[in-house]
Amino acid sequence: MPELTIGGWILAVIAAMSVGLAKGGLAMVGLISVPILSLVMSPVQAAGLMLPIYVVSDLGGLIAFRRNFDLRVLSTALPGAIAGIGIGWAGAQAVPVEGVTLIVGAVGLIFALNALIRPHLSAQRRQPSRLRGTVWGLLSGYTSFVSHAGAPPWQVYVQPLRLPAMIYAGTTTWFFAIVNWIKLIPYAALGQLSPANLWGAAALMPVALLSVWAGLRLVRIIPQKLFYTLITWGLLAVSLRLIWQVLA
């Protein structure tokens, strides 16, 4: 982990908090973790630093939702997700840091604009589909590999299925837990799980774990519409800053 200023450590703590809050029930908050850290370090290093935090934070969710998941949905989306991770791994050396920064910014921008312009997905209920699951799973796996931003494509596929709330939350938890464990292999091979990153992740881990508990509390008392609106605007601002950083 690079030497950070006080401001840099504040951003790192916010990123770790966003991961914990996401695992505590405020799922989309985790999207801002890598974009925020990318303001003070390489997005590649930011993704490597965050992955151990995601993996450890996933454990609590797996315990909580050990029986609440839809195996059919997982079976339609995971093969594509694994392929997406493979594509990300294969192209990792070919894409320069500026390209990764641009991808991270673009993913965040597209999601934020979509959330603001189209706040509600189709009201028509769908059934799990091998084709749609593979396509959106692949996009989710790839964006998750690049910047842990796999939630938007996953939601495009899963939200129209109208799963019961607990099944939806549990299926999402299991999907990303499996994706994150698989990502450990290419991340280690690419050197993103360096001792410096692991020490940095260990320092931030208590913040993330406390935030899991906080997320479980906050999801019960804060109007989610307001919360996600603020997060969406925050993601939009950070994403625009990253894109400007590359193109300026």
Rank of each mutant, 00 (worst) to 15 (best):
T171L: 03
L163D: 11
L216A: 06
G150N: 03
Q127W: 07
S129L: 13
S194D: 05
I167D: 13
V158D: 15
S144M: 01
Q192K: 10
L210K: 01
L190P: 00
S144A: 10
R130A: 15
A214M: 14
K183H: 08
L209M: 13
A188T: 07
R130N: 10
A151V: 12
I185L: 14
T171H: 06
R217K: 09
P195G: 07
G191L: 11
Q155E: 12
L216M: 12
P128F: 12
L161F: 13
L209W: 06
R132E: 15
P152T: 05
A214Q: 08
W136P: 02
A203N: 02
W181F: 14
Y168I: 13
V156P: 09
W136V: 00
P160N: 01
S129A: 10
A189R: 13
A151Q: 12
A177W: 04
L184M: 13
V146M: 05
V156G: 11
R220E: 15
L131C: 07
P164M: 06
V219F: 07
Q124W: 04
L204N: 08
H148T: 04
I182K: 06
W181I: 09
R217M: 04
L204I: 07
S144C: 01
L163R: 01
S129P: 11
F145Y: 10
S140P: 01
L204P: 02
G133W: 00
M166A: 10
P152E: 11
Q124N: 11
A188Y: 01
Q124T: 13
S144P: 04
S194A: 08
L190V: 04
Q127I: 03
Q124Y: 07
F176C: 00
S147N: 12
V207M: 15
T134S: 12
L131Q: 10
G141I: 04
P186W: 08
Y187C: 02
L161W: 11
R130C: 08
A214Y: 12
T173F: 09
F175G: 02
P186V: 11
A149P: 00
A214C: 11
R132W: 09
P152N: 04
F175M: 11
P160G: 00
L204Y: 08
V212M: 04
Q124F: 08
Q192Y: 14
A165T: 08
I185P: 03
M166L: 09
V135S: 13
A189T: 06
R125Q: 14
R125P: 10
G137Y: 08
G150V: 02
G191T: 10
G137I: 05
Y168T: 15
Q192H: 13
L218P: 15
F176K: 00
L163N: 04
L198R: 00
A189G: 03
